[in-house]
Every structure is written in C-alpha cells, then in structure tokens.
C-alpha cells in the first residue's frame, strides 16, 4: 500500500497497463500489419512480396471513390435520421420518463439482444416486395404494384439508422438527463418561452451528447456493409462491401487494406471538420 502511495504515477501506469497491452496486441499490431499488407504486390497464386507500392492508394481511391462518397453520404444521412428519431426519444425519456425511465432505456437497447445480422435479415423479410409491410398496402391499392423498398438506397439508409439508433439515443439521454431542472425554470423566469428554453438552454447543454452520439453512429455507419449487402443492390454498395469483397471474395488483399486506410483517413478528416463546426468550445468548456 505504502509503495503505491509513494509512487502515484506508477500506480496510474499499472492501472493503464491492461488497456495499453490490449490495444498494442489487438489494435496497433494488426493496424501496422494491415499497413504492410497494403504495400504488398502479388496474388494468392504467385504469393506476395512487400514492394512498397504506394501507388495502390491513388489507384484504389480513383477506382472506388464513388463507393467512398456514397458511404459518407449514407452514413451522414443515417446519422441525421437517428438524430431526428433519437433526440425526441431521449428527450421524452429524460424529461417525461418519470418512474418508467429505466424500462424505457431498456427498451431502447432491447434490440441488441438479437444479433445485428438477424435483425437486418428480418427487415429483408418484412419489407420484401410482397412481404408483411408492403403486401397488404399493395393489395389495398394504396401502393403501386411496382413499388419496392428493398434494393434501394432508402432501405440501406433506413437499415443503418435502425441498427445504430441506440448509439445516438443513449449519449443524448445522458446529456439531457444531466440538465438540472432549475436551469429550465431559470430560463422560464427570465422570459424564455418553450421554444426559447429549448433553443437557448436545452439544446446547447445537450450538444456534447449530440457530438458523442453522432460520432458513435457516423463512424461505424460509414464502414458498415451488412445493410448494403442485405437491403441494397449493386448500385448501393458501400466502401465496406468493397473492402469485404477484396479480402474475402477476390483475395485482393493490398487493395482491401489500402481502402481501409483511405476510409480511416476520410473519417478522421470528417470528424475534425465536424468538431470545428459544432464548436469544441461547448465540449471543453473553454473561453473564447
């Protein structure tokens, strides 16, 4: 005990050690390895050699830029949808949930008890051209016979939004729930009507939650391939589908690896721009 007390910084490192070790072994090492893979040339038949072929990056970018922009667009659209659905949901649970708060929160994460893949597959069944959702509407003549949801960008974006909704809702809930009720009373006391209270107090104070929620949704959404695979068609393939295909179908490892890094770079740049835009001041509490 006394040794730890005399060496507080050592204690900190000991506590950090498992995490650092884990990240080294399971994140940093594979990342470095993958970077080397991207610089290979060859094929599964002839074998690979590390040739330092950086040219693969502009090549891959040129070839798949369409998929990359589409992924960013789908991911962005899905993030906006989750925000529009998740914010009122989180707001309701935080301010009107009362004693049902924990039940409602449980319901938000309840879908996680089923596998991601299974949920998306059941969407495929429910929204099939003559399935549970569209069939009766078509029979009733409310929708034209040619109408379809599956194999459209709408289905992919909606699927992503559905699957990532809890990642948006929970951070928003945490941020909203933390707002002391007397701040809203103070705003009311200072002549703010309902909309102004929301605009001037609730929303600015929820901003850290908006930031966290949108990153937690956007980052995995851009790299997602399951939704595009199951709910989309060849014209709505995302960068994740390409990477998956490069690795598992055509064994073009270098291109798959290079695309992974391009995706990573694109996301990092996007997030930095976003942080600028939303105003990191709100997040750090700094003064300007």
């Amino acid at each position: 005990m006394s040794w730890f007390r005399r060496h507080p910084s050592a204690t900190a490192y000991i506590l950090l050690a498992p995490g650092i070790l884990y990240l080294l072994v399971f994140y940093l090492y594979p990342t470095a390895q993958m970077f080397l893979v991207s610089l290979w040339t060859g094929s599964p038949e002839t074998g690979y050699a590390l040739t330092g072929n950086f040219g693969i990056y502009p090549e891959a970018l040129a070839q798949y830029s369409e998929h990359l922009t589409r992924s960013i667009f789908y991911g962005g659209a899905a993030t906006i949808v989750t925000f529009l659905v998740g914010f009122p949901l989180a707001y309701f649970i935080a301010f009107r949930g009362g004693r049902y708060k924990s039940v409602l929160l449980f319901l938000v994460i309840a879908p996680f008890f089923t596998s991601f893949l299974l949920r998306t597959l059941s969407w495929k069944i429910i929204f099939a051209d003559n399935g549970l959702a569209l069939g009766p509407l078509k029979d009733a003549g409310l929708l034209p016979d040619t109408f379809r949801l599956l194999a459209t960008p709408t289905a992919v974006i909606a699927g992503i939004a559905y699957n990532f909704l809890p990642f948006m809702t929970l951070p928003l809930y945490v941020a909203l729930e933390k707002i002391p009720p007397n701040l809203l009373e103070a705003a009311q006391d200072l002549y703010a009507d309902g909309w102004q209270r929301f605009r001037r107090v609730t929303l600015p104070l929820a901003l850290p939650g908006v930031f966290a929620g949108s990153l937690l949704t956007f980052i995995p959404a851009v790299g997602d391939f399951i939704n595009a695979e199951l709910l989309g068609d060849p014209r709505s393939q995302m960068i994740g589908n390409v990477i998956q295909a490069r690795f598992l179908r055509v064994s073009d490892y270098p291109t798959g690896a290079a695309l992974s890094f391009i995706l990573m770079a694109a996301i990092i740049i996007g997030v930095l721009l976003y942080a600028r835009l939303v105003g990191t001041e709100e997040l750090t509490g700094g003064t300007t």
Binding site: N182, L183, A186, A187, D189, R200, V201, P204, L205, E282
Partner: peptide
C-alpha cells in the same frame, strides 16, 4: 424574478 437555490446559472 427569482434567485434560485444553488443559483441555476447557465453553465454554457
């Protein structure tokens, strides 16, 4: 106007 318990200043 009210001066609230614990002030209720707007932190942002």
């Amino acid at each position: 106007n009210t001066v609230f318990q614990n002030y209720a200043l707007f932190p942002h």
